[in-house]
């Protein structure tokens, strides 16, 4: 048989065999059988020695062409097989993607803190600095400097816990404002968050421990309008752009004039609902222009400077925000409650 015939035979046999190859292993065996050291094509190549020098180049070229063709066919088959195998494997590896698993543990901050964080980020953005002070406080800072002298009836309203004659559990975070005014020169722009205490028995809406955040601004020519503008920005940031603020006359010893502030009920958007008792408004905080007497007591010249102050009960706005009906939930730490927050 001449080379040509041999090549055709090898090629035909291999193509036939390829048809039946079902795995990469079989393919490898076939490859060895044809192209391996002892393979049929290799044998043919070796047999070229018997050819005359004139025939050799032609035969060599023919064998090389055949070799390339066979190699390409093998490779093609290999690719087909491996992608089929991969496909098979992926198919086998399919899982039920709806099967539940435990999630990575992620906790959360306390709901009151969640709301405080929102409030703080609002006032941080408005250029307010956060200042804190002691929870056990001198009567002097908690009352006297705030225009609440000893035996003032408004002190009774605050149901104070006393440590001794001169030390109290602070009834509001206002003493932090007094301390700041005494140590810092205007302009002052601060917020004071913190824990406060009043001798109230625990029930659904009262707690002897609760949290406030108070704000204080002292500068030249500060007005009630600026106060309203600040609280309007705060309300819109926290509850949405359709929220309006309403000021009502009120009284606090450390501010004059004073106001209670209502916000458009964020449940019914002012239409009137159970939450706002049909009024469309929700009472949220108290505020006013700092009483000049307080400024003077804290060493600030009230003929040059004026300022405003406001105070927000955090538990109240937290309860409103999340629809919490009983304040005790905030202090029990029951995970069935806490795990609902995010």
């Amino acid at each position: 048989m001449d080379i040509r015939e041999n090549l055709d035979l090898i090629s035909r046999e291999m193509h036939e065999a390829l048809e039946n190859v079902g795995s990469l292993q079989e393919l490898e065996a076939l490859k060895v059988k044809v192209l391996g050291k002892k393979g049929s094509l290799t044998a043919l190549l070796r047999s070229m020695g018997q050819l005359s020098p004139e025939e050799r180049p032609k035969a060599g070229q023919m064998i090389n062409v055949a070799r390339e063709e066979l190699t390409a066919a093998l490779e093609e088959k290999q690719q087909a097989l491996s992608s089929a195998e991969k496909e098979m494997r992926l198919k086998k590896e399919a899982i039920d993607v709806t099967e539940p698993r435990d999630l990575p543990l992620v906790g959360t901050v306390h709901p009151t803190q969640l709301v405080l964080n929102e409030v703080l980020s609002c006032f941080e953005g408005l250029g307010y600095e956060v200042v804190e002070g002691p929870e056990v406080e001198l009567d002097h800072y908690n009352f006297e400097l705030l225009n609440l002298p000893k035996n003032h009836p408004a002190r009774d309203a605050q149901d104070t816990f006393y440590i001794d004659d001169s030390i109290v559990l602070r009834t509001h975070t206002s003493p932090v404002q007094a301390r700041t005014m005494l140590t810092k020169k205007p302009p002052i722009r601060i917020v004071c968050p913190g824990r406060v205490f009043r001798a109230d028995e625990v029930d659904a809406t009262h707690s002897p421990v609760f949290h406030q955040i108070e704000g204080l601004v002292i500068d030249k020519d500060v007005s009630m309008g600026d106060l309203k503008g600040t609280l309007d920005a705060f309300a819109k940031r926290l509850y949405g752009d359709d929220i309006e603020v309403r000021f009502r006359p009120s009284f606090f010893p450390f501010t004059e004039p004073s106001a209670e502030v209502d916000l458009t009920c964020f449940n019914c958007h002012g239409k009137g609902c159970k939450m706002c008792k049909g009024t469309g408004w929700i009472e949220v905080l108290g505020c006013g222009m700092v009483n000049p007497k307080v400024l003077e007591m804290c060493g600030i010249d009230s003929s040059v400077y004026s300022g405003f102050a406001f105070g927000i009960g955090l538990e109240r706005i937290t309860m409103l925000r999340y629809g919490i009906k009983d304040m005790r939930l905030l202090y029990e730490g029951d995970l069935r409650f806490l795990r609902q927050f995010r």
Partner: peptide
């Protein structure tokens, strides 16, 4: 009190922010 307008603080704009502890 309804006549109080919504105005904004003039004066310098201080840098606000949390204190170290918070």
């Amino acid at each position: 009190y309804d006549r109080i307008p919504i105005t904004h603080l003039k004066g310098e704009n201080p840098m606000g922010g949390l204190n170290e502890k918070t």
